Computed example of a mutant assay.
Amino acid sequence: MFTNTVTFRQTLYKYSIRHKFSYKFKKNNTKKVIAKCKVEGCPWNITAYLIGKHSDFLRVTRFNGEHIHNAQDKLIVSYWTRANSTSPIIADTLRSTIDKSMNEIRRDLYREYDVRLTYGQAYRERGKALQDIHGCRHILYIDGCFLNGLYKETLLATSTYDVDNDLFLLAYAIVSGEIVEDWSWFLRNFKDITRSIEITLGFDRHNAIIGAVQAIFGGERHAYCYRHVKENFSAKYVKINRGQRRTSGNSKEAALKLLDAVAYPRHEEEFNIAMRNLRLFNPQLAQ
C-alpha cells in the first residue's frame, strides 16, 4: 500500500537502482500505474491501482519480481546510476539525518545502491535534495538598535513574514553592542536552528553585520536593504556636491532616479546600462 502515486513511483525508482535494472511504464496516471522491465522478454512487472474514488492510496495488485536477463541485457541499466538521478534518494537520507556530510552521502550511495559520485556531484545533488525538502527561498531580516530605557545595551533581532504577510519575530538577543563578535554569536546560534536551510538575509550595510553574515552564512545569497542604501547614497551626494551650484541636470532627485534604475532591473543588460548612466552622471556616486 502506498499513500499516493508520487510515493509509489519514487519507491519503484529506488527499487530499480538497488536491483540494477531499468523499467518502462505501460500505464502511468493518478489511478493506475503499470510498469515492466525494459529488457525484452523479461517477466518482471508490477501493477498498482487507486483503492477508491475519494482516496489517494494505491494498492499493488500484481507483482512478478523475477528477472530473466543475460550479461548483455544488464548493460542497459547503467544509465540509472547517473548523478542527476540520485537527489530523491539523497532527500530521503537527509530527512532523517539532515547534517550528513558529502562524503557520508557518497559512502551511503555506494554501499546501498552501488552508485559512485564525485564530491562535486554529491554537492550538487544534495542541493537539489535540500530544495525538495525545504521548498521555497527563505528570506529573513536582521537588524540591531540601541536601548535607551532601563537596559542600555543593544538589541539584535531577526524576523520574517508569516503566511498572513505580517512581520513575525523569530529570535532576539540583548548584547553589549553591534560588533562583529556579538553579531557572529547571534547568527551562529540562529544557524543551529535553521541547520541546512539556505537562508537569504536582508540587512543594512553595517560593517559588523556584513562581516558576521559572510562568516556564518556565506556572502553570495544575501541582500542589502534598499532604504538604507538610498539614505547612504543621498548623504554621499550631499557631501560630494557641498558648496557647488545645483542645476536641473545635477540634482539629488536626478541622482536618486538613476539609483532606482540601478536597483530595480530584472536583467543584467538593463543593470549594466543603468550603471553606465550613473557613472556618466557622477563616477564617485557610481563607486
Rank of each mutant, 00 (worst) to 15 (best):
F21R: 00
S22E: 04
Y23S: 02
Y23G: 03
Y23A: 01
K24M: 06
F25R: 03
F25G: 05
K26G: 08
K27S: 13
N28M: 09
N28L: 06
T30V: 14
V33E: 09
K36Y: 05
C37T: 10
V39P: 06
E40K: 15
E40G: 04
G41W: 02
G41S: 02
P43C: 04
P43N: 03
P43L: 01
W44N: 12
W44G: 04
N45F: 04
N45P: 00
I46M: 12
I46D: 01
Y49V: 12
Y49K: 13
L50N: 09
K53V: 03
D56T: 15
L58K: 11
L58R: 06
R59N: 13
T61D: 08
T61M: 10
T61W: 07
R62W: 05
F63I: 04
F63V: 01
F63T: 05
F63W: 12
N64I: 03
N64S: 08
G65K: 12
G65V: 08
E66G: 05
E66A: 09
H67Y: 08
H69V: 07
H69F: 06
H69I: 04
N70Y: 05
N70H: 07
Q72L: 12
D73F: 02
I76L: 15
I76G: 12
I76E: 14
V77D: 08
V77W: 05
S78G: 02
S78P: 00
Y79E: 11
Y79F: 10
W80A: 07
W80C: 12
T81P: 01
R82P: 02
R82K: 15
A83V: 01
A83D: 01
N84T: 11
N84C: 09
S87V: 04
S87A: 15
I89G: 06
I90Y: 07
I90N: 04
I90W: 03
T93E: 11
R95I: 09
R95K: 15
S96Q: 11
S96G: 04
S96H: 13
T97N: 13
I98G: 01
I98W: 00
D99G: 09
K100S: 15
K100N: 14
S101D: 11
S101N: 05
S101I: 03
M102R: 07
N103H: 13
N103D: 13
N103R: 09
E104C: 12
I105L: 09
I105F: 00
I105G: 01
R106V: 09
R107S: 14
D108G: 02
L109I: 06
L109N: 10
Y110D: 10
R111A: 10
E112F: 07
Y113R: 09
R116Y: 12
L117Q: 09
L117I: 09
T118G: 13
T118E: 03
T118P: 02
A122E: 03
R124A: 08
R124L: 11
E125S: 01
E125M: 02
E125A: 00
R126M: 00
L130R: 12
Q131W: 02
D132T: 15
H134W: 00
G135C: 11
G135A: 12
R137Y: 00
I139P: 10
I139M: 10
Y141D: 00
D143V: 00
C145F: 14
